[in-house]
Amino acid sequence: MTNTALRDWRTCRVVESRTVTPRARRITLERPVPLGRPAAPGSHVDVRVRLGEGPLAATDIRSYSVVESDPTGTLLTLTVQLAEHSRGGSAHLHSLRVGDTVEATRPLQDFPLLAGADGYVLLAGGIGVTALVGAARALARLETDYRLVYVGRSRASMAYVDLLQAEHGPRLELHVDDEGTALDVEALVHEVAGAPGRRELLMCGPVRLMDAVRRAWQSADLSPVDLRFETFGNSGWYDAEPFEVCLPEQGVEAVVAPDQTMLEALSAAGADVMWDCRKGECGLCLMSVTDLTGRLDHRDVFLSDAQQQGGRQVCVCVARVVANAGAGPARVTLAFA
């Protein structure tokens, strides 16, 4: 959606914090001023998180979908999953208790529900469900033709199953890996292609799932316009591991830690590179790969499938490199695109 110019950072009070899965907590923030309307479906807030302990700890900004809000947009409920390689962002939020405060923006909109399609498929993978709870509720209220497909590793790891079952009944389809009901992506996309009218698929989940859907969507000859997704650029095909990056033009070499992006490592080492969205969407941080030891894990949504396969360019805000077994440390050499 046309971006919200006013971010309106405020000190918000935590009015609810409780466990919803072994790794996820539901956290409700109270903004000191009402927004005047409920947070729109698909909106998120940016939260200033502390990385580490103590008053001198660095801070960074993380985005979390608004799962629900009150009618005045004063109470904003997020659901935060503890990240595997967290430097403290999600851990900081998990440590918050009722009465604590945190800095957060007003709801921002990058993933609006757009009216006008003949039907909608909402595809949620794991904690990605948080980006779709509001959209599903709005579609139900509008009495639209929709399905909510929710994929997870185990039932215990899936937040809000009971709530969604109550709100969506037979329109909710659960696919749980360890119950032997894993999602058949090809079949899902095939059904969309066979349904009458214009169908939109909105998804949020791990990159592997979203890549699989994108490929199936493309092979089914469906329009990319109708495939919409929210990505916070934080998952890939491979687990994050350390790798080396160098930018000879600026005489910069750096090691990228597992909890750090290539962009952060380059900047910390003194490189001056262009960037903007920092979630692999805009393409401003695109750089050329001139040498590579290991495999690229692109993690962006700017490059096409073919461009990623070609491996000539990467979005340094999200891309990583993983070592090939027995081939020495992973390393990438970059040049300006």
């Binding site: 959606m1 006008g116 919409r228 969407e281 949504v301 700017f302 490059l303 096409s304």
Partner: peptide
């Protein structure tokens, strides 16, 4: 943009930015 406000064409790139849209 289509009537839903969804961007259908961006210059100089092969993909559609997932956020590209205007309110309808």
């Amino acid at each position: 943009y289509n009537p839903s406000g969804r961007c259908t064409r961006l210059p100089a790139q092969e993909t559609l930015n997932p956020s590209a849209s205007v309110p309808s």
